[in-house]
């Protein structure tokens, strides 16, 4: 069976879709079934309210993720009450989400549930640690790539990315866009000492050659091209806690110091720049590193899109495998 034995090496795994309808749910359900068959103790949660829908507003969407006995799952009070299968509450957390407190429960029979987990990265990390103390071998996280979310799936040990025709109906374009995301996930992480010092930092800081961290006293790099700010007084390494945008990279890549600039970002989800601008910045010699890094272990593709587009699964797989040295699986072939 594909990629499940690899999964067992990790304590937490996020499944992240680059777009809706790229087969995230099918992929997740597949992994859950395989792990169940192996008798592995698993827990399931998500980042915030299911990242890719706004069903907390309409409340109409049906729960999709299958839960089996004796899996653990974590969701909000409000979603917990909506479930129709028998489950045993193990913990009621002090942490609250928009939908109430988080409930940790064990399924006593199978059923489906809406997931809503911690909305920020630190809470998610704590939750994963707590689940481990309840005997959980691996925590699966329904993740999302969202500008709005303050929680990042990068906090999990490993990640599976789902992509497909819903993102682009053109194979070369889809491969290029997907490869870009994979490149970002593969960005190197900084040394642990500096990481621990920067994790609690929320404003732009400069790091000199000796590792001294200096607050640059600017809140945002938005409109940096208009400002007379000496960004590099203390060195060419900058920690940017917020979003890295085209505007920022366009500004930096034309500076004469461009080749010496190193940006440190929280994790790959904070890079919102387009592939073109990002590539230009890198080609000019700039580098980017992350505080929190996850390991991408596989890609999952959905060649069908809701608008009727169906791509050639084999060609897409081959094209991706050529660019990205990782297993690539067709979600439709996992379903069975």
């Amino acid at each position: 069976m594909p990629f499940t034995s690899d999964i067992l090496n990790y304590g937490s795994l996020s499944i992240v879709g680059v777009e809706k309808n790229t087969g995230k749910t099918e992929c997740l359900n597949y992994i859950i079934r395989r792990l169940r068959d192996k008798g592995i103790s698993i827990a399931l949660t998500s980042i915030g309210v299911d990242g890719e829908t706004c069903d907390q507003v309409t409340g109409t969407r049906k729960p999709e993720i299958e839960i089996f006995k004796p899996m653990l799952f974590v969701t909000s009070e409000s979603h917990y009450r909506q479930r129709r299968f028998l489950a045993e509450i193990l913990d009621v957390s002090g942490r609250t989400t928009a939908l109430g407190r988080l409930i940790t429960a064990r399924a006593l029979e199978s059923g489906k549930v809406m997931l809503s987990g911690p909305s920020d990265t630190i809470s998610l990390k704590k939750l994963i640690a707590e689940l481990k103390t309840l005997g959980v071998k691996i925590t699966l996280v329904d993740g999302a790539l969202s500008r709005k979310s303050i929680g990042s799936p990068a906090i999990t040990d490993a990640m599976i990315l789902t992509t497909g025709a819903a993102w682009s109906a053109n194979i070369p374009t889809l491969v290029r866009k997907t490869t870009f995301i994979c490149d970002l996930i593969a960005l190197p992480s900084i040394n642990p000492d500096l990481r621990d010092r920067l994790l609690p930092v929320h404003s732009i800081h400069s790091i000199d050659e000796k590792g001294m961290v200096t607050n640059l006293q600017i809140n945002s790099l938005f409109g940096i091209d208009q400002k007379e700010v000496d960004l590099f007084h203390h060195g060419y390494t900058l920690f940017v806690p917020g979003a890295v945008t085209d505007k920022l990279l366009n500004h930096l890549k034309v500076l004469k110091e461009a080749s010496r600039i190193k940006l440190i970002v929280r994790d790959f989800t904070k890079i919102f720049a387009s592939p073109e601008v990002y590539t230009q910045f890198i080609q000019r010699g700039g580098t980017i590193e992350v505080l929190i890094k996850t390991k991408l272990i596989a890609l999952c593709i959905n060649p069908s899109a809701p608008n009727g587009t169906v791509l050639n699964s084999e060609r897409l797989r081959e094209a991706l495998k050529e660019k990205i040295n990782l297993p690539v699986w067709d979600v439709r072939k996992l379903a069975g």
């Binding site: 009450r81 509450i89 009621v92 407190r101 409930i103």
Partner: peptide, 11 residues
């Protein structure tokens, strides 16, 4: 009471 409240009380 719902299950969450009963859990709290039992706890």
């Amino acid at each position: 009471p719902d299950d969450i409240e009963l859990f709290e009380l039992k706890h």
